[in-house]
Amino acid sequence: MEAKTKGLKLADILTTIVIAIVFGIIYKLWGPLYSAVGAVGFHLDQLIYGMWFIASSLAYLLIRKPGVALLAETAASAGELITGSQWGLEVLIYGVVQGLFAELVFAVFRYRRFDVFVVSLSAVGATIGSLIMDFYKGYIGSLAPWNLALFLLARFIGAILISGVFAVSLAKALEKTGVTQMWRTASKDDYDALNR
């Protein structure tokens, strides 16, 4: 065994950040799409808002360690900022807050569950984080009630579908490629296979 280091190991950090940067690019490309859908009106754009929480869910599903969700969301938003997001500095702050709330959900489950339910719940957490920011920035509290309800509903549903369900399906597909085997500890099955 190697010497125990406090917190995440460099390999975990680097992998998380690299995953996050991939999503940083997707986040950046998501911006114009979001604006285009927003032109349709009726908060249809909120249905795709959930994509901006996916880095934390996916990094957590793959690496499965404390702190990864927050790091991933922060790094992804930093990547989005570096590649020139149309929202500027705002995305970094939103990213940190969303990551914190997603991380909180994983912490409540003590980093032991990796199923659709918990990941969807973390997406809901991240959504709440984004809403807190929107409440101050966009005065969403002063939208007409029916409009606000539509807005919230669309954002929560979108978040659960994209950063919950879709993230899990992405993670499963990535498991099949075998890349996650690199940092999973050997299971009992592996030892049994050696002894056969």
């Binding site: 390999a11 680097l14 992998t15 690299v18 995953i19 991939v22 992405l170 990535l174 890349v179």
Partner: peptide, 13 residues
């Protein structure tokens, strides 16, 4: 995302 991520993860490791 799948090919980009899997390649990036291998490279990162």
């Amino acid at each position: 995302a799948i090919p980009l991520l899997s390649q990036s993860i291998r490279r990162a490791q």
